[in-house]
Design a protein around this nucleic acid. Structure first.
Lengths: 150, 150
DNA sequence: TTGCTCCTCACGTCACGTGAGGTGGC
DNA sequence: TTGCTCCTCACGTCACGTGAGGTGGC
């Protein structure tokens, strides 16, 4: 009856997943339709979809990159494909003992992360610029209010 | 022949404005069409549109809020309407000498700015969370690379 | 005057929203 | 078993993209 035992392989319905990820069932079906979510071909047409915690995390990641970095779903599909390639590499990594192969795999991962980090930082600096503008305007108004209070 | 003299009331064409704002002529026409840009009714149907530096700044602001805060154009229209109300208040502000009226106007402006700042900060904290996740993953890979180098 | 940029339809697209009508699982 | 959530079309919408055919300004 522990929490970990309860959540092991817990099957989630599409409405629950939508709630957990802040999306809608329609959005999740659409992501499956365009190939952003895996495992769609295993289901018989008309039957209910069942999701796992891993699906929730993937959708959260999609939503996060979509909203925060403003990527199109096509760009996201490419990015996620690159991530899967990385996961594949990870399995190769554990399969090999060759230090040179391991180094090559890790270097490649670093490249993918660097790409995403650059996007994040670009966005952050734009947001900070906007914040500075707003706080400047606020400061000006506060000054005028103090003038009035005299 | 000074720069300021040259740019005074300089009339810009839609293509130039698109370039300056990182948009397209189609986007600018669309924004005019849905009422995000003012002064559309003064132009005779079929004639060329002429823009000023003020239009460039407005479009930059629209693009910035659209991309960085993820607002819909409908939300943006409301926000910009509120801003115009503030500009109107500003004129009233300069017209009145009554300190109480002036204070009321400034307080209202503060409210609008606070709303935008809240949106900006929400976004920023989400972005920072994503950045931390990415740098954590990068650190892990760097550690493994150092292990390999031994 | 010649080009280049502009103009207005108008249909296409991406990322879903929104019913309509029907079936499946606690 | 009943009701709620799920299913699949399929059309609608928002924010533009993309030609087609024609006119205007340095």
């Amino acid at each position: 009856m522990t929490a970990t035992a309860e959540t092991t392989k817990a099957k989630l319905r599409i409405g629950e997943v939508a709630e957990l990820t802040g999306t809608t069932p329609r959005t999740i079906r659409y992501y499956e339709e365009i190939g952003l979510l895996p495992g769609a071909d295993e289901r018989v047409q008309g039957q209910h979809r069942w999701f796992t915690q891993a699906d929730v995390e993937r959708i959260n990641e999609i939503v996060s990159l979509r909203d925060l970095l403003g990527l199109s779903l096509d760009q996201l599909r490419q990015l996620l494909a690159a991530q899967e390639a990385r996961a594949e590499l990870k399995r190769e990594y554990h399969a090999t003992e060759d230090p040179a192969a391991r180094k090559r795999i890790l270097d490649e991962s670093l490249g993918h992360i660097a790409t995403q980090l650059e996007l994040v930082r670009e966005r952050r600096s734009e947001l900070e610029k906007l914040e500075v503008e707003l706080t400047d305007r606020r400061r000006l108004i506060h000054r005028r209010l103090r003038e009035l209070a005299k």
